[in-house]
Design a protein around this nucleic acid. Structure first.
Lengths: 225, 225, 225, 225
DNA sequence: GATGAATGAGACTTCATTCAT
DNA sequence: TATGAATGAAGTCTCATTCAT
């Protein structure tokens, strides 16, 4: 599912381990691995840690996943899926101005992706892109491309309505994408991107960026509808 | 391509073992380290590999750099930190409008950092931030903070002149930073961030983003100087 | 000879690779470590050597002992520290005179520590004290201090009974300790401390030293009980 | 010389290095090495440190001494020689009782050996005896044996005079030797041999030990001269 | 002779992966 | 199927020793 569930504690305390049905194992491992990869990165996550958090032994991990790399790939694949159909539908039905739509889209992104574990996946993929070309291609197709497309349609809608000025959309979409990707990285980079002494509030960040972008794209006052 | 060409092998003419070149060593090691760090990341780059590529032995590396982390810091100082004094001086002397200044600054960034191997360093630090807190802190202090400060001063200059509208600079600086960081990641993520079939031209990307941001920040026409 | 025979090779019957013997491992490792530490010193003993002599791989050693220092501490606990509780109990229950007790204590020391491989540990700690402060502190706490305390209690008992003359115990305990430490060093110094042509018999040495010390501490004949 | 000079600072500040005559080099190296070996032990002393303290380069050290081991041997050989002739002469001329003589001898030992750098050599040799059999034999012949002999003569004198009771001198000499060797080790073992919270005063230690030993050896009151 | 840059054999320790049970 | 004891390749850094200058 897209709205990534915040990871539940690995074990049901009341139920003895023996009871857990084996078909649940891969899911539990994936869940634990997700948490740890996001938290510590690929290299720094030890296989045994994943196993322990999933409540199984180290050996069992390798029973289900050929290697740590395969586990990584599975984690990424497992956690990617589509909010995009829903978002596309919302786009079709949206009634307000394109400026409002842009604000709304970025807020939604934060709420349903940026603020969830899913953002950790994005960070992970960007960080490890070099080592996993296959994953990279997969992620691009499944996530980045639909995102690009949706942003493009929003901007096109504004231009068509005379609300936004004409722009080369191939580049303009990055004006929307960049602030979100940046926030994503920022949230997973230990404060690297932030000024010391200032704690960024994501919602404020989103609205301030949307504000500047929208202003930057609006058609001159006299020509707007 | 925007990744600068990796430096060629140091050209071992014949069998010049045990050459004494105290002056040249640090530079050669730094160059080799830069290449490898960018290519493979910090953790995955082995000290000996750096030494071999620089044409020296493992021990020699540690003769010049106390540890792998110190080597990395030296790479950063050599390749990134150095631009800020020059940029700050240019800022002081700049004659044109703040809009022009913003355009100019982003172009300069691309030319002197984004387009060079140095951009790979930024990518790597973001990717591995979690695992090397000391490096993260160093990079933030040495690179991110001066960058933040410079952007802030540019925006403040525009606001003071009545050219830009009043904004909360704590957030506004990210409107400038985000597109650059995004481009940076994009260049080092194996096409992950780009639409298939469209090859982004960095210079065009920069100018289009600068254009949108500047528009987004300009004061309303009647109130401008 | 007073150096206990070094334990024979663990008898690899044929090719029993990857044997699982969780229970036996620590003991085997401890035994091998003891041998090697005594034979070569702490610094000069390589972890892998210990592992090989115990018939396991390098990694296995670190499965059971966190570090080389911890391994050493475990060797000390296993082979030395353990005697003090028993000795303290014997002290409490002892019926004879304090002179007898002193003789007995020194004989016991020889029998259970001096004549065993454990004496090599004491020698080694003294020799390498400077380079391993943590080990030194540990050994002082775990071995020297209980030894001091026991000797002090024996002497105090004699004084209290009027059997020994009053003495400053802070110094008097060394009269008991010194001959034992000396014998210890002597046994592990390749004959350095002995006259050529005369082979010291440890039991005779102990009894002669005890005799002199006891005489030296006895209260004047008229005042004794 | 026997009374080892406390090591002078390695360089004459006023005189440029160039001036130092080369024939003094080995001596300076030996002196520096002595200090460092005593201070840090054999393994922990780095060749370069010795060279630096002697005011020469690392390479020069190996010009004069084939290896670190050879340097060690040279240090020991250089620093051992005779107080014993002088002491033997004092023994012949001594007028007081043998009890006094024993006290006096132990005090002299402390003053002229125990308290000087020479004691560091003894400690060193005992610690490394195993690794340098040749040194060990040399030290035994040159130092231990004359010491044994002198002690034996003192005790024999006391027995002959009826002052001391008859004893097996082969063992009795250790009653005198052990406290001195122990003090020696104690001074070079980082407090290993001392109770925490009590700082041993060497002169008091010596006199208290001598007191106990003398008491322990005295003939019964009625039979003394 | 003297220098000090360069070398490279190790040392300890970690951890992905295997495999006997 | 599951376990977890066992493995051993890597990795960073040190330092005695060599040798070009």
């Amino acid at each position: 599912m897209f709205t990534a569930p915040s990871s539940p504690k690995p074990a049901q305390p009341a139920t003895p381990k023996r009871e857990r049905r084996k078909e649940a194992r891969p899911g539990e491992l994936l869940n634990a691995a997700m948490d740890l990869f996001v938290e510590k990165g690929f290299a720094a996550t030890r296989a045994e840690e994943v196993a322990v958090r999933a409540g199984v032994s180290k050996g069992t991990l390798f029973l289900y996943f050929q290697s740590k790399e395969e586990l990584f790939k599975a984690v990424v694949r497992e956690n990617i899926s589509g909010v995009f159909p829903k978002w596309n539908a919302e786009f079709e039905a949206f009634q307000g101005s394109s400026a409002e739509m842009l604000h709304y889209a970025m807020q939604q992104w934060w709420e349903h992706l940026g603020a969830t574990r899913a953002s950790g996946i994005t960070k992970l993929v960007m960080a490890e892109a070099h080592n996993f070309p296959e994953i990279t291609a997969f992620f691009q197709q499944e996530v980045m491309l639909p995102g690009h497309t949706l942003i493009r349609r929003i901007l096109q809608r504004g231009i068509d309505a005379g609300e936004f000025r004409p722009m080369n959309l191939d580049y303009a979409i990055y004006a929307v994408l960049a602030p979100m990707v940046f926030l994503n990285m920022s949230c997973h980079s230990e404060g690297l991107c932030q000024s010391p002494g200032f704690t960024l509030v994501p919602e404020d960040y989103i609205s301030s960026q949307a504000d500047i972008i929208v202003h930057g794209m609006l058609a001159p006052p006299g020509t707007r509808p």
